[in-house]
């Protein structure tokens, strides 16, 4: 394999307790720690392992968003990616426009494989990978927990509701990473220094000449309905009694 393209989305760090702004205009992101979407980090780790096994020559990380996303791309380079591309795009650009822009980069770079996280933990849309595969007219293997390559195809194990499904896909293709694909490496300080010298190119999204997709409007945000704290019982007899009171036994 020649090239693997990996998408990295900048999102609110998964350890942050996300809060809706009191005026319902959105989610509080000011002064909040931002990170690589964890599923994308798993995707990058997989790409690096594939390259380290000698099955790919180059790993390119790409992000779409404002200049702030350079930070996540630098982290990706420090993890071991060879170069980075930032598609300078409005914050919160919709998944279909994202997929269309991604396709333009795919057409420029001709990767053999595109690896993405199965979903981003901010909007939880779970769309971009499938959309890219659709527009590209290529296979998709979503929710991957194991990947093997052989003669221009990949055998992918997918975590589906019924268990573990295995499919075979011809390359090039899009694969989206699930949790158990691997455990991403930690970045070491010398790698952060080295990453500063690696190439990071910026492309304005307008240069890619994509048609803007009809975006879904986000008209208001609210915190979820809270469950109330219930009662505590002392022992099994108390538990059985409480369940009987609720008519559950």
């Amino acid at each position: 394999m020649n090239k693997i393209l990996v998408g990295l989305k900048r999102v609110v760090d998964y350890n942050v307790r996300v809060r809706v702004r009191s005026d319902g205009s959105g989610v509080e992101t000011d002064g909040v720690k931002m990170s690589i979407n964890p599923f994308d980090e798993i995707a990058l780790e997989e790409a690096l392992r594939i390259r380290e096994r000698g099955e790919a020559a180059e790993v390119i990380v790409i992000s779409m968003g404002t200049a702030d996303a350079q930070q996540q791309l630098r982290t990706g380079l420090a993890m071991g990616a060879d170069r980075a591309i930032l598609v300078d795009a409005p914050q919160g650009i919709d998944p279909l426009s994202r997929a269309r822009a991604f396709l333009k980069v795919v057409e420029r770079e001709s990767p053999d494989l595109v690896l993405l996280g199965k979903q981003a933990i901010d909007d939880d849309n779970n769309q971009t990978g499938q959309m890219l595969a659709a527009l590209w007219g290529r296979p998709q293997a979503t929710f991957a927990s194991a990947i093997e390559f052989r003669d221009g195809s990949a055998t992918v194990t997918r975590e589906v509701d019924a268990g573990l499904e295995t499919i075979e896909i011809d390359l090039p293709a899009v694969i989206t990473a699930d949790l158990r694909l691997n455990e991403p490496r930690y970045v070491k300080l010398p790698d952060i220094m080295k990453a500063k010298k690696k190439p990071l190119d910026t492309i304005a999204i307008d240069e890619l000449g994509i048609e803007a997709a009809p975006a879904i409007d986000e008209v208001g945000f609210a915190p979820p309905a809270e469950r109330q704290k219930g009662i505590m019982v002392d022992d099994v007899a108390g538990l059985v009694g409480a369940l009987k009171d609720k008519g559950l036994l």
Binding site: V12, V18, R19, D123, P214, E218, V219, G220, A222, P223
Partner: peptide, 18 residues
């Protein structure tokens, strides 16, 4: 629909004509 692992609920509106 839920976002941020259900920590926020967003009301969305799909544009007319699509």
């Amino acid at each position: 629909r839920p976002i941020y692992a259900g920590n926020a609920i967003v009301s969305v509106s799909v544009p007319e004509g699509s």
